[in-house]
Amino acid sequence: MEFDCEELRRLLAKYKFRDLTVEELKNVNMFYPHFRYSLDTYVFKDSSQRDLLNFTGTIPVMYQGNTYNIPICLWILDSHPFAPPICFLKPTANMGISVGKHVDAQGRIYLPYLQNWSHPKSVIVGLIKEMIAKFQEELPLYSRSSS
């Protein structure tokens, strides 16, 4: 589906660095054209809320000779690209989370790339590449066998 730049600019109206963010998302879309974008309310740990852009989709992770489509959701902060995205796994109803070094029980993703985030060297495409690499070492989701 065609990437709608104008729609994205409208969704990102309140973002501090809208043009930078749109340019970067155009680049993400070139590598990962199946992500869906929407503006939703994110609730922070301190219960504050903010309308933020998020994109959901799957990333291809090779494991034991098979490629799995791991569902993720990335929330882009309104100070992007000067703050890292907040990243979650989005397991389907028949998937379980394998808590590990990079994933907690709520499906939140932790990566060195996020900890060391710094503009301009850190970019979403680079983040996703590291996510794929780490998930290939330690798969974060498993499929529950059907009864």
Binding site: F35, T58, Y63, Y68, N69, P71, K90, S143, S145
Partner: peptide
């Protein structure tokens, strides 16, 4: 829907 890939994950091993 914009034709995204279907989520999949490997089976768990007991």
């Amino acid at each position: 829907l914009n034709g995204g890939t279907i989520p999949t994950a490997p089976p768990s091993y007991t």
